[in-house]
Amino acid sequence: MKLKGVSTDIEEQNKGEYSLIRKDEETELGMFDKPLPCFGCGIGWFSFLLGFVCPLAWYFATVLYFMSYYRRDPRERSGLAASAIAALVFTVALIITVLVLVFSHH
């Protein structure tokens, strides 16, 4: 019996030679054994927290996000995205504040 090109007959499977798709799964997990930079929370989340003191950190993390820095370590993606969203919210709030101040003097 065959299902979509895959044999379910044990004798037929034993006749063929199979090769492993992945040599070792441990090499993939080894990348995540090391802690993230910036006190273990990653550049993205560190920039997110630092951005409340210095909003330029949000813009730095946004640039890293758009440069796909998270491809080096996928654990960085959420923190960098949070910083990008914070930078967007801060920019919109800053523009609204400036517009209100400029047009309130007329």
Rank of each mutant, 00 (worst) to 15 (best):
M1E: 07
K2S: 10
K2G: 06
K2C: 04
K2P: 07
L3N: 10
L3S: 04
L3F: 14
V6M: 15
T8G: 00
T8R: 03
T8A: 04
T8P: 01
D9T: 02
D9E: 07
I10Q: 12
I10S: 05
E11L: 02
E11Q: 10
E12F: 09
E12C: 07
Q13I: 15
N14T: 15
N14A: 15
G16E: 14
E17R: 04
I21Y: 07
R22F: 15
R22S: 08
D24K: 05
D24R: 03
D24E: 04
E25Q: 05
E25S: 08
E26Y: 00
E26K: 03
T27I: 14
E28D: 08
L29Q: 10
G30K: 13
G30E: 15
G30Q: 08
M31C: 07
F32S: 02
D33I: 09
D33T: 10
P35L: 05
P35M: 03
L36H: 02
L36Y: 05
L36R: 06
F39S: 14
G40D: 02
G40K: 05
C41H: 10
C41K: 15
G44A: 06
G44I: 02
S47C: 12
L49C: 13
L50M: 14
L50G: 08
G51N: 00
C54H: 09
C54Q: 04
L56Y: 04
L56S: 09
Y59G: 11
F60L: 04
T62Y: 06
M67Y: 08
M67L: 15
Y69H: 09
Y69R: 11
R71F: 12
R72F: 11
R72E: 12
P74G: 13
R75S: 01
R75W: 08
R77D: 08
S78P: 02
A81D: 11
A82W: 01
S83T: 09
S83V: 05
S83D: 05
A84F: 02
I85P: 01
A86C: 01
L88M: 11
L88R: 02
T91W: 11
A93M: 10
I96Q: 05
T97N: 13
T97Q: 14
T97Y: 13
V98K: 05
V100E: 05
L101H: 07
V102K: 02
H106P: 01
